[in-house]
């Protein structure tokens, strides 16, 4: 079953012949989509300024960083891992890049982004090494590194924040500029998704990630270098976190020691909502996008609906739990249908 879901993007073309089956297989994402649409309509009734172009753009901009991280987290989850350190990696890369940029104003934004990715990649590589070579369990390795990276961030910051006036215009411009009226952050996120779509569905390495996730033993027998794949996945995650660190600092024009503290849970929640299985092997980009969008809508809509701030967490929890359980129930129904079909 896990393999089936993993193959879904590839199966799409073949599925045209069996439209009914494809319809069923896609139902999961459709359910989530329908849920999002219903939610959007509900919010729109309460507050007519919800579905304006401006607000949708704002939401997309605010969700961009979350959705970029969710791609990396999906790959980690697919290999049966988890990465709790991304908030700390993000903060570390953001803080270091902000310090570099504030010290030398001539630092080009592109170079800043590359530096951030580089720092994140190193952070991710360390975790990948721990997980792949030393066989440390991902949750423990990333928990430990979360503490360590966060500590480094505080140390590097020396108790200071890097504020907007210390950052050159060009650097802040990374997140505020727009091309054809679309914010750069959204474009970067789109680019990452297209690249990820190609990488996951159409390259050998991308497929190997799923193979390792759904059955490590048989992957090994098939000659897949499991260690290489694991290191790759955590390094990618680190690189994306590093990228997001730069984007975050540029977006908020401020680098703090406690930047994005606890953000990893939002990212994991987005993946889970998108149907990525913690047990590995399954997870689709389309699901992850929808999951991130749902979290983004919740963050944006609850304040706009004038919901008491004290109810927000409770509502968020109920929706996440409800969506996850509903997804599971629907999936069961789909599987039962598969079985019924087989009997006929």
């Amino acid at each position: 079953m896990a393999v089936h879901t993993a193959n879904a993007p590839a199966a799409e073309s073949a599925a045209k012949k069996e439209s009914k089956l494809a319809g069923l297989a896609k139902f999961r994402e459709l359910g989530l989509l329908a849920f999002i649409l219903l939610l959007a309509i509900g919010v729109q009734i309460r507050n007519p300024s919800f579905l304006t172009i401006e607000n949708v753009m704002d939401m997309a901009t605010n969700t961009a960083i979350l959705s970029i991280l969710a791609v990396g987290m999906m790959l980690v989850l697919v290999t049966r891992g988890i990465d709790l350190s991304i908030g700390a990696t993000l903060a570390l890369s953001g803080m270091l890049v902000a310090q570099i940029v504030s010290a030398s104003a001539g630092f080009s934004p592109l170079l800043a982004v590359i530096t951030g990715i580089g720092i994140g990649t190193v952070c991710g590589l360390v975790i990948g090494g721990l997980v792949a070579w030393l066989g440390v369990l991902p949750i423990i390795a990333t928990l430990a590194m979360m503490n360590i990276y966060r500590g480094f961030t505080y140390m590097a910051s020396d108790g200071k924040w890097i504020s907007s006036y210390q950052m050159p215009e060009s650097f802040v411009g990374i997140a505020t500029s727009s091309v054809l009226g679309i914010n750069t952050l959204i474009l970067i996120a789109l680019f990452i998704y297209i690249a990820a779509y190609y990488f996951i569905g159409h390259t050998r390495t991308g497929r190997q990630i799923y193979a390792v996730g759904s059955n490590p033993e048989s992957a090994k027998v098939t000659g897949i270098n499991e260690k290489k794949i694991l290191i790759l996945v955590y390094t990618l995650m680190g690189g994306l976190s590093g990228l997001c660190g730069v984007l975050w600092v540029s977006k908020f024009a401020s680098a703090q020691g406690d930047t994005a503290s606890g953000y990893e849970l939002s990212v994991i929640a987005a993946c889970i909502l998108g149907g990525v299985s913690i047990a590995g092997g399954s997870g689709k980009l389309s699901g992850v996008i929808l999951g991130a969008v749902l979290i983004g809508i919740l963050n944006n809509a609850l304040p706009m609906m004038d919901v008491s701030p004290f109810w927000q967490k409770g509502i968020e929890g109920t929706i996440i739990l409800g969506a996850v359980l509903l997804n599971a129930a629907v999936k069961r129904g789909v599987e039962r249908n598969h079985l019924l079909r087989r009997r006929i």
Partner: peptide, 20 residues
């Protein structure tokens, strides 16, 4: 089919939400 991480992640948000 849902691992304990997923369930308890959701209830983690939910329980604290109820407390709020």
């Amino acid at each position: 089919e849902l691992s304990a991480v997923i369930i308890t992640l959701a209830t983690m948000i939910l329980y604290r939400g109820i407390a709020y």
